[in-house]
């Protein structure tokens, strides 16, 4: 059994970032995944959505659900990440002040995604965009 879902993440309305994660959460719960798996996957995807909304003008998320794993591929055509190693450090952020006033931009996004997922791959080309592939294993 493989299920696939495609989500559009808007870039012009920050208040809507997280809609896809919320929808995914309901689907995973209905499919009977454990609370831990559902939480880890949806938090990681939520942080990814927030990142795309803040930095990249939105993007798309393609999610593949298998009985033993959930993989989300988040793709954007944003400015790219010049130094991925630095971006992975807790507290490093290039988010503007107006995003901080909304409760984000603390430099925890990518570290959180890394923390909650079992596998994470980041491919980024400056000026072209970024693709995050994140997997949570359902034990």
């Amino acid at each position: 059994m493989t299920m696939k879902f495609h989500f559009e993440v808007p870039g012009d309305d920050f208040t809507r970032a997280g809609e896809a994660s919320g929808e995914l959460k309901l689907k995973l719960k209905r499919l009977g995944f454990s609370a831990d798996v559902v939480r880890r996957m949806t938090i990681a995807m939520y942080e990814g959505e927030i990142n795309m909304a803040i930095h990249a003008g939105g993007g798309v998320a393609d999610v593949e659900i298998l009985p033993d794993r959930i993989t989300a591929v988040l793709t954007d055509n944003g400015p790219g990440i010049p130094d991925i190693e630095q971006a992975m450090k807790e507290g490093w952020s290039t988010a503007p002040d107006n995003i901080r006033s909304l409760g984000f931009g603390a430099g925890m996004g990518l570290p959180n995604i890394k923390k909650y997922t079992d596998m994470l791959d980041i491919k980024s080309v400056v000026g072209k965009g970024t693709t995050l592939t994140m997997t949570v294993l359902a034990k």
Binding site: F14, A35, R39, Y46, L102, G103
Partner: peptide, 17 residues
């Protein structure tokens, strides 16, 4: 408990159950 007022507060709470 928060002093922040925007939809992301609800989304965050939802993600954390």
């Amino acid at each position: 408990l928060t002093g922040l007022i925007n939809p992301q507060v609800v989304r965050t709470a939802d993600m954390m159950d």
